[in-house]
């Protein structure tokens, strides 16, 4: 089971991340989870093979201060989250403007859960061909 070491808010997240990095923690990654009503953003840090996780709860659609000024490595993952979840990070060192992973004509925020819409997997083309034949 994952341990969440600390809850942070939009005001404290940058300061907390910077103080962790100052005390020789290594930035591992960030994870965003779409919890339907809100987003959970986890900040994972590591020291001596121990994971230290911060959790930030963000209301949709989400505007979050970027930690990329304190930690350059966060830049890439923050740009990815911008693409996939449509969360806006303010103060990014390099902003790809939501087209880091996605092409200009790609669907917007493809990883977000849309209420009432369910993605179904495509059936085998062989089965489809039969249906048409019938």
């Amino acid at each position: 089971m994952m341990k969440i070491n600390e809850e942070v808010s939009l005001e404290t997240v940058v300061g907390k991340a910077a103080s962790l990095l100052f005390s020789e923690y290594r930035f591992v990654t960030m994870t965003t989870v779409d919890c339907d009503e809100y987003f959970d953003i986890y900040y994972h840090f590591d020291k001596n093979y121990e994971l230290y996780t911060l959790r930030l709860k963000v209301e949709k659609p989400g505007v979050v201060p970027s930690i990329s000024k304190a930690c350059f490595a966060a830049l890439i993952i923050e740009n990815e989250i911008q693409d996939l979840f449509g969360i806006t990070f303010t103060g990014l060192v390099v902003d790809y403007e939501k087209h880091f992973l996605l092409a200009p004509d790609a669907p917007e925020k493809p990883f977000c859960h849309v209420p009432g819409v369910k993605i179904t997997t495509v059936d085998s083309p062989a089965a489809k061909k039969d249906e048409v034949a019938k």
């Binding site: 059936d123 085998s124 083309p125 089965a127």
Partner: peptide, 20 residues
């Protein structure tokens, strides 16, 4: 990868799509 389709009605059939 949805490569197999099995149908019972109207005819019993087992279908395998090799490229999937």
């Amino acid at each position: 990868s949805n490569a197999l389709t099995v149908t019972r009605t109207p005819e019993k059939e087992w279908k395998y799509e090799r490229f999937r």
